Simulated scan of single mutants.
Amino acid sequence: MSYDKVPLAGVIGSPIAHSKSPQLHAHWLKVNGLKGFYIPMDVASDDLETVLRTMPKMGFVGANVTVPHKEKVMELADLVTDRATLIGAANTLIFRKDGKIHADNTDGYGFIQNLRENAPDWNPKTGPAAVLGAGGAARAVVASLLDAGVPEIMISNRTRVRAEALQADFGSRLTVVDWVQAGNMLEDALTVVNTTSLGMVGKPPLRVPLDGLRKDAVVTDLVYAPLKTRLLLEAEKAGCTTVDGLGMLLYQAIPGFERWFGVRPVVDSATRAAALR
């Protein structure tokens, strides 16, 4: 009697206990009636290469990657997509049958898809975007906004040199604004994005003045704990269209799940509920 291998996938990071990805993927496996498991794995940096080389031998078909390994896996992968190269980080790995590790970044896809689904009237080409933060998430957001046709991006970060590094990489459509002037960016911005952890549960608040928000702006926060951050609450009061950060997490997970388990999952209210459990 022969038994089919049960496909395994998971998320690698350190720490990892807080990740919502396992409950999200478990939900999709269940509703699609698929065999498979998705598990959280707390992996130290020193063990990353050994773990990645061993996983395919254990039945793993792929993995998500989160902090602090998103840059390091780029060096360990055999094949890296153009978008992961542009962003400088990977969040999705596919272990191919020929033994090669394929690295991709779906964060930008997840970000744009979340905006398109939850702010259907959003038109990136109508005016500038303002981006708060210049870390790994900001790189994915900037790359995807430029790709979507945003004419100009104003970017501000507490450490200015990090914002300047993004400007150097992404070019003349980026303008760096000092953090103390970050509130002023909002007066011209039709797309506003917080990519920092400010405003998250357990983190300092986002203290940028928000009185410059335009009522015709689309405002989104990558923070999803709480779902309604101060930025989103103030934006709602100002009459803006707001999009919470949970959707980005859900949509960025679609391409990986489809590659690993062979079915394209759907994001709906039950998916959101599963991720919030």
Rank of each mutant, 00 (worst) to 15 (best):
P255D: 10
V192Q: 00
A84H: 05
C240H: 01
M41F: 08
P56D: 11
G33M: 11
F95Q: 05
R139I: 04
P226W: 12
L174M: 01
Y251C: 10
V267E: 07
V80E: 05
T159K: 00
T85P: 02
V65T: 04
E187Y: 10
P68F: 05
H18S: 15
H102A: 15
T242I: 15
V141N: 11
T229M: 15
A9I: 08
R277T: 14
L232I: 14
T191D: 02
G202A: 10
L210R: 13
I153N: 07
D211K: 05
D216K: 07
K70A: 08
D42S: 13
L166R: 03
I94D: 12
G199E: 05
N194T: 09
F257H: 11
G202S: 04
S144N: 01
K30F: 08
M74Q: 07
A253P: 13
V193N: 05
Y38T: 01
Q113C: 03
M41S: 12
K237W: 06
G36H: 10
V11F: 07
M154Y: 02
N184G: 10
V141F: 07
G127P: 07
R162M: 06
L246I: 10
A129E: 00
E236R: 09
A168C: 09
G239P: 03
G88Q: 02
G33N: 10
E164T: 02
M248Y: 03
A217L: 02
K57I: 06
L52N: 12
D268G: 13
H18F: 06
S156L: 01
D82C: 08
E49M: 06
R173Q: 06
D46R: 14
N32P: 12
R158H: 01
F37G: 14
V266Y: 06
I153V: 04
G13C: 09
T126L: 04
F170I: 02
T175W: 00
L115M: 11
I12D: 05
L190Q: 00
R160Y: 04
L166T: 02
I155A: 11
A84W: 00
G99F: 13
V176H: 01
G202L: 11
E236Q: 12
G10W: 08
N194W: 08
N32V: 12
I153F: 09
H25R: 15
T195G: 06
E187Q: 15
L76Q: 13
S144H: 13
L24R: 10
M41R: 13
V67W: 00
T50F: 09
R162E: 09
T195P: 03
N184Y: 04
V267C: 01
D98T: 09
A275N: 14
A90Q: 12
N157K: 13
P22L: 15
D78C: 07
P7Q: 07
R272Y: 08
M41L: 15
T81W: 01
V31P: 13
